[in-house]
Design a protein around this nucleic acid. Structure first.
Length: 259
DNA sequence: TTAAATTCCTGTAAGC
DNA sequence: TGCTTACAGGAATTTA
């Protein structure tokens, strides 16, 4: 599933291929996403030059010369490709002769021009131990539910929340207000570390399908996870799932290393 | 105010 | 072998 490292991998590929190019054509898939693409997002798209390719959390932002922008979210099954597979194309555009296709079998993705309120970028200096600690303090919800909340920190999903909590030694179902200041500091550092590593690996590709970068290459981080998608943790202990899912996600942890 | 549940959707895998 | 069922999850929305 595309989380921050996967989206960043896509962003870099888009930057290489379409930055500075003029959009000559676009087409909305039938059916498109669950939510229709607002007319506002498509207005003036043809003839616009792509002046910047940015990322905010899990959102991709294509800034356009005519002042607007295209905001894309890949949902959980979305991917972008420059060539090959034509299946489940929900939106496509051509810029400078390069065709960019957004595929999304489950149609959870979105294209528009609005960005919701998001928490700090986890890799920026704005995401600090003390700010994470204050976001957690007083909250009864499980700490993992808050990491998945995009208003607390932008871009973290199930894979990287699971990994960071394991590395920080914190059980995912611990009430957030029971996380100490020191632990919040460790958690903050581990989130940054795991995201940086995953970006370097080109993201996480589970199984054979799942995520591929726009050139069709799988990410290599699945081979490096300590917990996610495993039965035994990197510590060598058997992993357990929490009694109930957290924020609707199955949550693995090590009963011996995480408290 | 916060938190939990529900909704969207379909490819994959497990079970009978 | 072939069918049915459960499961996966990001974020918006609804309910408690």
């Amino acid at each position: 599933m595309p989380e921050l490292p996967e989206v960043e991998t896509v962003r870099r590929a888009l930057e290489r291929r379409v930055l500075g190019r003029v959009i000559t054509d676009y087409e909305v898939g039938r059916p498109a996403f669950n939510r229709p693409i607002p007319a506002e997002a498509l207005r003036g798209l043809k003839g616009s030059r792509i002046t910047a390719v940015h990322r905010r959390g899990k959102y991709l932002l294509l800034h356009l010369s005519q002042g607007g922008r295209l905001v894309c979210h890949l949902g959980m099954s979305g991917s972008i490709s420059f060539s090959g597979d034509e299946g489940h194309v929900r939106f496509r555009f051509t810029a400078g002769g390069v065709t960019v296709r957004i595929h999304d079998p489950r149609r959870f993705g979105r294209v528009g021009c609005r960005l919701p309120e998001l928490g700090p970028e986890p890799l920026s200096p704005a995401f600090r131990p003390d700010s994470l600690f204050s976001a957690l303090s007083g909250r009864r919800a499980p700490v993992k539910a808050l990491l998945l909340d995009q208003a607390v920190v932008a871009g973290v999903g199930n894979i990287y929340a699971t990994e960071a909590l394991y590395r920080a030694g914190i059980r995912p179902d611990r009430p957030a207000r029971r996380v100490t200041r020191a632990e919040a500091g460790r958690l903050c550092r581990e989130i940054k570390l795991v995201l940086r590593r995953a970006i370097r690996a080109g993201g996480t590709t589970l199984n054979d399908q799942a995520f591929k970068d726009p050139e069709g290459r799988p990410g290599r981080f699945a081979l490096m996870t300590a917990v996610y998608g495993r039965e035994t943790g990197a510590c060598g202990h058997a992993l357990k799932a929490t009694a109930r899912p957290i924020a609707g996600r199955t949550s693995l942890y090590c009963p011996r290393c995480q408290a």
